[in-house]
């Protein structure tokens, strides 16, 4: 079977949701298009199995679940290596996170189709992509690229601000984010409360915020975005 798939470039299905990936596979087959589901295990395993096929169209879900390292959208990280293997990557996602979609387009995905579309339409987009037709109007692509640049600037600014903190200030802020009070943090580090208060003041100044809660919100956002 593997040799057979080497000769005809199959559509690669990279989705941890079994039902959607199975229905897509069967629907493509009834249209006479060969497709394969790759088991969604780890990052390296996925790339290793993809390398065994002749590169063609890969349908990639952006949220690949917990078995692939990293917080969602962890599928993003597959785009570059898949493209360097020669795959065209079409994003098939249920996510409404336009930032993630914009990031995928910026990394060279050929387009994007939402799982919220009727299945017939979803299938039609996949078949268009398979046939090499354009699935993303240039204007829309530009819009996504602009959005990506904007979000990227925001991330950079967030990183900038968090990087201004010294390592001790980071530790203090992490503890505050866990709900500890300044007095407990002082006890943890066996320093005086005045010292911790001074550190908190310095943190607020460096992050350019007015309150402890705002500082905690920043560090939480940075962690959620996976940029620190």
């Amino acid at each position: 079977m593997m040799d057979a798939s080497r000769s005809a470039a199959p559509v690669l299905l990279l989705d941890d949701h079994r039902l959607i990936s199975t229905t897509l596979l069967l629907a493509l087959r009834t249209q006479g298009v060969e497709a394969v589901q790759l088991p969604i295990t780890g990052f390296d395993e996925i790339l290793a199995s993809a390398a065994r096929y002749r590169p063609g169209l890969a349908l990639l879900d952006l949220d690949l679940g917990e078995r692939v390292a990293g917080p969602p959208p962890n599928g993003l990280r597959l785009i570059d290596p898949l493209r360097s293997q020669g795959w065209s990557v079409l994003i098939v996602t249920a996510s409404r996170n336009r930032g993630a979609i914009a990031a995928a387009i910026a990394r060279g995905a050929i387009g994007w189709v939402s799982k919220a579309e009727p299945f017939d339409r979803l299938l039609a987009v996949v078949l268009d992509a398979k046939a090499g037709r354009d699935v993303l109007p240039a204007a829309l692509r530009d819009e996504f690229l602009r959005l990506h640049r904007k979000l990227r600037a925001h991330d950079v600014e967030l990183i900038e601000r968090v990087r201004r903190l010294s390592s001790r200030e980071r530790e203090v802020l992490d503890r505050l984010a866990c709900g500890r009070s300044a007095a407990v943090v002082a006890a943890d580090f066996t320093v005086s409360l005045a010292t911790v208060r001074a550190q908190i003041r310095s943190i607020l100044a460096k992050l350019d915020v007015q309150s402890q809660l705002a500082a905690v919100a920043i560090i939480n956002e940075a962690k959620r975005a996976g940029i620190i």
Partner: peptide
């Protein structure tokens, strides 16, 4: 958002089943 995402996946899959049954 996480829960909605999961539910959209299920709905989309079932829509695919409908397509297969029909066509």
């Amino acid at each position: 958002e996480e829960r909605d995402h999961e539910i959209r996946n299920v709905v989309s899959g079932l829509s695919g089943v409908g397509h297969l049954l029909r066509t």
